[in-house]
């Protein structure tokens, strides 16, 4: 593999991690969704580049799904839903931005150390992709646990899923990648429809223990 193709793949996958970091410090819902759209665009570019490098044409389908569905349809849909059912535009965070960023840096370092150590013999491109993908997955989880708002949890889950698609395309010749990305798109569509239909404005969890007991049917 010549240096330039590798560098471009590296740049795109690294860019994805960077955009994941951008998600960590958004405190407005619309801004978060816009950052997610950017995440999906970078993912689409990265997958398309992999398709070109590996000469695997079916991956262009995955890239197209990422671009059309995740970068356009879902963000536009979410914008509409937020306006229609009047969700608070501010994101309530469970942990401050500073500690979250520090935790994020720690998670990325952890995944680099782990994945680069266990894959010394793998193809260098796949190896980098796996390490970046694990970082994106962990950052997505971090977004999910530090936000109290249902929509931002969904966005966190979607960015996590982008990491999985990156890992799946990086694993050379992996079958079912397209099918899996379709299955995930269906899953996400279900979640978004769920938010809309059930009008889930906030996460149900509350610091008020009395309310918790009530929800869980455990009150005497």
């Amino acid at each position: 593999m010549n240096g330039l193709t590798f560098d471009i793949a590296h740049l795109l996958a690294g860019g994805l991690v960077l955009v994941s970091f951008m998600m960590l410090y958004q405190d407005r819902l619309f801004a978060l969704i816009n950052v997610f759209a950017l995440h999906a665009v970078v993912l689409a570019l990265s997958v398309a580049w992999q398709a070109y490098v590996q000469d695997a044409h079916h991956l262009y389908v995955t890239a197209a799904i990422a671009l059309i569905f995740k970068a356009i349809v879902i963000p536009v849909g979410l914008h509409r839903i937020i306006q229609r059912i009047g969700i608070h535009r501010d994101i309530e965070t469970a942990v401050g931005i500073g500690p979250t960023m520090l935790a994020g840096i720690g998670l990325v370092a952890l995944s680099m150390v782990l994945m680069l150590r266990v894959t010394p013999e793998a193809d260098p491109l796949a190896r980098e992709d796996l390490a970046f993908a694990l970082s994106i997955i962990l950052l997505g989880l971090l977004v999910m646990v530090t936000r109290r708002n249902a929509v931002s949890q969904v966005v966190g889950f979607m960015s996590l899923e982008n990491g999985l698609v990156l890992a799946a395309t990086g694993a050379k010749g992996m079958p079912l990648v397209v099918e899996i990305s379709v299955a995930f798109s269906i899953l996400i569509a279900f979640i978004v429809i769920g938010v809309f239909l059930f009008r889930i404005r906030e996460r149900f969890d509350s610091v008020d223990v009395g309310a918790l007991d009530d929800y869980r049917g455990e009150r005497r």
């Binding site: 796949a126 993908a133 999985l164 890992a167 799946a168 694993a171």
Partner: peptide, 9 residues
């Protein structure tokens, strides 16, 4: 799924 991808790798 990530585990499954790693098994494939």
């Amino acid at each position: 799924l990530f585990g499954t991808i790693l098994v494939y790798m």
